[in-house]
């Protein structure tokens, strides 16, 4: 099914309505988002595709409570993220959002396990940190520091750290961008597994079109608007993808 606009759905976890974002960079106004409307449904795996500067990261930041829109509204369940104060956004990120970054952003002075425990310490009902690291295949590397881990291993720690709090949504910005092919595929497999087993809404930003095949929905963003939304009738598992 194809459509220029996403439809609203009553069971949607996220409601994004007519969101615009304008940055002022020096004397120039940059329109990063120009009226985006979108719903995210429970357990969905969504890939945001688009070229650099299309506005996909801005959308991800707004969903993650790192940024607020210039106009329009964003709802997470019945929380209006548009009107939230900085403290509320912090609490929102703490309780409901997991982030995975392109460059992992682990704390260099903490081991893999401790990086994960950092999040369980401030969560209400977290998973077991060791269990999570086992889930991402790092049972043997619990006590290694980031500098002792490969890029792929670091990214898997980052995923474990993101999901250990049982977030409602997992936001991944170019999670394979810094990894080689094989490692990248391994990371995608883990994301897929987390999405499947924990039913976490997963939003992945990429400009690697091949990854789109593993999504429930693929949202194409271009020049700050949703150019198209594609629903994959048949998801492909990551090991079948190649690029």
């Amino acid at each position: 099914m194809k459509g220029a606009r996403a439809q609203t759905s009553p069971e949607a976890v996220f409601h994004v309505h007519e969101v615009t974002k304008v940055y002022r960079m020096g004397d120039v106004e940059v329109h990063a988002l120009r009226g985006v409307t979108l719903d995210l449904l429970p357990g969905e795996f969504v890939v945001l595709l688009g070229p650099s500067g299309s506005g996909k990261s801005t959308l991800l930041n707004i969903l993650g409570g790192l940024d607020v829109p210039t106009s329009g509204e964003v709802y997470y369940r019945d929380h209006n993220l548009t009107a939230a104060a900085a403290e509320e956004l912090t609490r929102y990120r703490r309780e409901h959002v997991g982030f995975v970054f392109q460059f992992y952003n682990l704390i260099p002075s903490l081991t893999a396990l401790e990086n994960t425990q950092l999040v369980t310490d401030i969560s209400e009902n977290p998973l077991d940190a060791e269990e999570c690291l086992r889930l991402v295949g790092l049972a043997e590397r619990l006590h290694h520091f980031p500098a002792q881990l490969s890029g792929g291993e670091q990214q898997r720690v980052a995923i474990a750290r993101a999901v250990v709090k049982r977030p409602e949504v997992l936001l991944c910005d170019e999670p394979t961008g810094a990894l080689d092919y094989m490692t990248g595929k391994l990371v995608l497999e883990i994301l897929e597994r987390v999405n499947r087993e924990l039913r976490t809404i997963t939003v992945v930003i990429t400009h690697n079109a091949a990854i789109a095949a593993m999504a429930d929905r693929v949202i194409h963003i271009s020049s700050g608007t949703i150019a198209s939304i594609t629903r994959n009738e048949k998801k492909v598992s990551p090991d079948q993808i190649s690029w």
């Binding site: 790192l66 403290e87 912090t90 703490r94 970054f101 952003n105 704390i107 260099p108 950092l118 401030i122």
Partner: peptide, 16 residues
């Protein structure tokens, strides 16, 4: 700074 900012993203408060 990088490390601390990522902790803020993860939901740590300014005080923490």
């Amino acid at each position: 700074g990088h490390e601390l900012a990522s902790l803020r993203v993860l939901g740590f408060t300014q005080g923490e």
